[in-house]
Amino acid sequence: MTIEKWVSDLAQMVNPQNIKCNESLKQYTMTKLGGNADVFVMPETEEEAANIVKYAYENNVPLLMLGNGSNMVVRDGGVRGIVIHFAKLDRIDIDGEMVIAQSGALIKEVSKLAAAQALTGFEFACGIPGSIGGAMAMNAGAYGGEIKDVIVDCTVLTPTGERIVLSKDELELAYRKSVITKKGYYVLNAKFHLAKGDQEEIDAKIADLTFQRESKQPLEYPSAGSVFKRPPGYFAGKLIQDSQLQGKGVGGAEVSTKHAGFIINKNNATATDYIETIHMVQRVVKEKFNVDLELEVKIVGED
């Protein structure tokens, strides 16, 4: 099958204006890195999303789901096949203490809307830059809170396009992993249970967490956030800092001088620069401390 055939078939399922060929993925990732997607498609409904997933499966077309691109590094050669982007699936509904958010909704927007309704439990997410889909897949967390603390259930598509609902236990949420990543599911929406709280306390907590984030993280540069998972018994940022790697990097990529756990796109870096900087950090930390730094970010695409 040709790219033209994919586009023609997809145009029967979604608005043709939501299909793009040879689309640069730089504008869809927080690192501002990466090559082009053969075909880029944005479903407007969950049914459209299911049809695309089913089509890719039945026709053996490679399919990559892209959320807010906050936890993903796309290689310079881009992505073959179809990239499905859920940005238009961004509805957030609040009913009492229940919050239902679609995959493309930004997690910090869910936190903001919950806070506006005096609902507590989601303050931890006020500064997380990802989407609900990515947050579910990685069991996103910050400042002592994580998705598994508030999740009720999650509706996903299997790789064949079948829609199923997974309970909290079925999601197998653990530190930066879930059954979603293990089985290659695509998140459609998630339901959270929060609690009524004191408006002033919620606002104060969000203000405090926002200050902590803005004062400690290099938000002025494109980055994928925390690049590495926390190794058992250590902190990745401390190991990198103690390895004297801050300010060092390859090409336009650099280990942040503000937060050692971040690798920033400081000066028109390529994805190759960024990935080589990651490997340099892993190599030096292994040599100095005999600790293997495992990636929290996902690297996709071709060189």
Results as ranks from 00 to 15, higher is better:
Leu194Gly: 11
Ile100Pro: 05
Ala271Lys: 08
Lys108Glu: 03
Gln217Glu: 04
Lys191Ile: 11
Gly67Met: 02
Leu188Ser: 12
Leu33Ile: 01
Val281Trp: 08
Ser256Trp: 13
Glu109Met: 13
Asn268Tyr: 08
Leu113Thr: 13
Glu162Tyr: 03
Glu200Asn: 14
Phe122Arg: 06
Glu220Asn: 14
Ile132Arg: 04
Val53Gln: 06
Ala56Gly: 04
Val83Ser: 04
Met72Asp: 00
Asn71Trp: 04
Val156Asn: 05
Pro159Tyr: 04
Arg230Trp: 08
Cys154Trp: 11
Gly225Phe: 05
Thr155Leu: 07
Tyr186His: 10
Lys5Val: 14
Ser178Cys: 10
Asp242Pro: 04
Ser167Ile: 10
Ser24Thr: 15
Ile94Phe: 14
Leu194Arg: 12
Gly69Arg: 12
Tyr28Ala: 05
Val227Glu: 11
Thr158Arg: 05
Thr2Arg: 01
Cys154Lys: 11
Met65Thr: 15
Thr158Trp: 05
Ala50Gln: 15
Phe40Ser: 06
Glu296Phe: 09
Asn267His: 15
Gly237Val: 11
Met13Arg: 04
Asp90Gln: 08
Glu146Leu: 09
Ala114Asp: 13
Glu162Ile: 02
Ser215Lys: 14
Val227Ile: 15
Gln241Cys: 02
Ser111Leu: 03
Ala56Met: 03
His279Thr: 11
Thr2Gly: 11
Gln12Thr: 13
Met30Leu: 07
Gly252His: 13
Asn51Ile: 01
Ser215Glu: 13
Lys205Val: 01
Ile164Glu: 00
His259Gly: 08
Asn71Arg: 07
Ile278Pro: 04
Lys216Trp: 00
Gly237Ser: 15
Phe262Lys: 05
Asp292Asn: 13
Gly81Arg: 03
Leu173Ile: 12
Val152His: 13
Gly141Lys: 09
Gln244Pro: 00
Gln102Met: 09
Ala37Lys: 00
Gly251Ala: 12
Ile263Arg: 05
Ser70Met: 07
Ala204Trp: 02
Ser24Asp: 05
Lys266Phe: 10
Gly161Val: 11
His279Glu: 15
